[in-house]
């Protein structure tokens, strides 16, 4: 998997880059094979990855577009669709502000009657914006009220002794919710290992609760902006 990361406005911006390394580029051979295959490849959790890939004869991988992406994110993260992402706290990111950049149309006033032929320069930024806003909300809700947490309850309640188990549970939940499949061994390991990377990159003196919440936000962001989540 390859991640697109453009996020200069994030409180923990430095960690975003770390996500890329932690979860996206672990195995060069896999990346090459993925690219050649022209289609998403799931090696399954328990089986040896096959090196013998069949190239798709007509690889037509398409961006889901803003509306599908938002619907899926809202469902996966159990958030109201209307509250997923709002610019200035008022204007819906997907339906209004970034609508055209995310593959939507606005025929009435802008004369954009068909989706843009190609993604615009701001499309990845808008995708990141929506995903990060949604993941940030989920993390905040779960860490503020861990007793009714939806995704990150184990992580919020974890101690140093139970953290690794909580990280594994979190990784599996993220794949289950966002990609609707189990994480494989490598994917789980990458997200678990990301904890140490995130910890090393955290601001000096950051408390463990803040670190865990930032981790939760960015682990969610990494999976939610994977090719598998955004394209079909």
């Amino acid at each position: 998997m390859r991640r697109r990361v453009v996020a200069g406005w994030l409180r923990a911006a430095a960690l975003v880059g770390v996500v890329v390394f932690a979860t996206g580029c672990g195995d060069d051979k896999d990346s090459d094979t993925d690219k050649d295959a022209g289609a998403e490849v799931d090696t399954g959790p328990a089986k040896e990855p096959s090196r013998e890939m069949v190239r798709s004869n007509r690889p037509r991988v398409r961006f889901k577009g803003g509306r599908r992406m938002a619907t899926d994110l809202a469902t996966a993260l159990n958030l109201p669709r209307g509250e997923l992402c709002k610019e200035l706290g008022k204007f819906d990111c997907v339906d209004f502000v970034h609508n055209v950049a995310l593959g939507g149309v606005e025929p009435y006033e802008l004369g954009v009657r068909e989706p843009l032929d190609q993604a615009s320069v701001t499309t990845p930024i808008a995708v990141d914006r929506v995903a990060l806003a949604a993941c940030g909300q989920r993390a905040k809700l779960d860490f503020d009220t861990p007793e009714s947490a939806f995704l990150f309850g184990d992580l919020a309640a974890a101690t140093d002794a139970t953290r690794e188990a909580a990280l594994k549970v979190t990784a599996n939940r993220l794949y289950d919710q966002l990609l609707r499949r189990d994480a494989n061994v490598d994917e789980t390991a990458a997200l678990v290992a990301f904890w140490d990377t995130a910890k090393a990159a955290a601001a000096k003196g950051a408390d463990s609760a803040t670190l865990a919440r930032d981790y939760a936000t960015l682990a969610c962001f990494a999976v939610a902006t994977s090719e598998e989540a955004l394209f079909y």
Partner: peptide
């Protein structure tokens, strides 16, 4: 090798 190609690649191209 694996019994079921769907389980190997996830897709049948």
């Amino acid at each position: 090798r694996f019994g079921d190609t769907d389980q190997v690649w996830g897709y049948n191209v």
